[in-house]
Structure formats: C-alpha cells, structure tokens
Amino acid sequence: MERGLLWLPLLVVFFWLAWSGWNEYQKIESYKRWASQFERHKYDIYSVLGQKDDRLTWGKPTRKDPQNLQTVSFADIARIRFRIDSKFFDDQDAEFPLNGKQISLELVLKTGEMPSIRFTDVNIASNWYRFLSDRLATE
C-alpha cells in the first residue's frame, strides 16, 4: 500500500503534464486558424500579434480563439517603445539585453493610450520593434 501512495503523486503529475500539453496544443491550433488572415504574425504564451496592410491586431491566446482582441491602424500610432523590464529602448540599432523578465512593445497612440504587447523572447520582440518602427517611418 505504501508503494501505491508513493506512485500517486507521480500519476497526478503525469496527468497534469498531459493536460497542459493538450491545452497548449489547442491554443496553437486556434492561433494557426486565426493567423492565416495576416501577412505577418507571432504566437507567444502571453499574446498573439498579427499585421495585415496598415492594421495591427493583438490579443490573448486561448483554446477557442484569441480573446481581448485589439486593432489599431498604423496612422493612429504616434511611436513605438521597446521595454525590457523597466528600461525603454527607442533606438532601433541599440544592443538589446538577451534576457529580461518583462519584455513588451508599447504603442503610444495619438489619443494618448499606451497599449502593451507582451513577449517572452527578446529577439522576436526586437524584430517586431524594428519592423514596426520602419513601417511607421514610411507612413
């Protein structure tokens, strides 16, 4: 009986890992369907982001469809700030730290709002920052 009690926590961990994997797989499949409408897109555990023509759309990934979707036109964006932890980077050619706990792009809209799009990877975030900054410069 003691052996059974010792294996019970492992069994619980196994089922939790299986459920977590299935849950993440469902989120990715939902993202694939959603992202097919965009020219450029990204998936992250924190957010999904897509760009089509002059529109930028982002939201939170879920198993069904992305939730809390927000859309903005490039014409409505005054500038973009790249934030790693509490430090802001405004220069596209700057050397970004390779790690950070909170990585985000902050869109400063002409209305004064500042929505934030979270990332887990500095390289992906910096590529989006450079792309969006270049795109704003040509608008």
Results as ranks from 00 to 15, higher is better:
F88Q: 14
V13L: 15
K27I: 07
N99C: 04
L8H: 05
S47N: 04
F38C: 03
G112V: 11
M1F: 11
R55D: 01
E2Y: 14
D53R: 06
E139T: 10
D134L: 12
D44Q: 13
A137M: 13
N99Q: 15
Q26W: 04
S104P: 04
M1S: 13
N23G: 06
L11Q: 10
S20L: 08
V48Q: 02
L5F: 15
S20Y: 14
W16L: 15
V72N: 05
V72S: 08
S30T: 11
I103L: 05
K110S: 11
T138F: 11
E113A: 06
I124H: 12
K42P: 01
M114Q: 10
S104E: 15
S47K: 12
I77Q: 02
N23K: 11
Y46P: 01
K42S: 13
I124P: 00
G21K: 08
A18L: 08
R130N: 05
L69W: 06
R40F: 12
T62L: 12
Q37D: 11
Q70R: 07
L109N: 06
D93A: 05
L69A: 05
S126F: 07
E95M: 07
G21T: 13
S86A: 15
F14D: 00
S104Y: 12
Q102G: 09
E24I: 08
I28C: 09
R40W: 15
D44P: 04
H41V: 03
L109C: 09
D76G: 03
V122I: 10
R79D: 06
L105C: 05
T120Q: 15
D90E: 09
E24R: 14
D91F: 01
D85G: 06
R135L: 12
E2V: 13
T62V: 09
D121V: 11
G21A: 14
L49I: 05
L6W: 07
R40T: 09
K87Y: 06
Q67V: 10
F15Y: 12
L136Q: 00
Y43P: 03
W7V: 03
I45A: 14
P66E: 03
F74G: 06
V48N: 01
Y46F: 10
A78I: 08
D54L: 08
D44Y: 11
N23L: 07
G100K: 02
D93E: 04
A75R: 10
T111M: 09
P97I: 01
N68Q: 07
Q26M: 10
G4R: 09
G50P: 01
D90Y: 00
K64C: 05
E24V: 12
L6M: 08
F82S: 01
D91V: 03
F82G: 00
E113S: 09
R79N: 11
W22R: 14
S47V: 02
L109E: 12
G112C: 07
W19P: 04
R130Y: 09
I28R: 15
V122P: 07
G21P: 00
R63G: 05
E95I: 04
A18M: 10
V122S: 00
E139M: 07
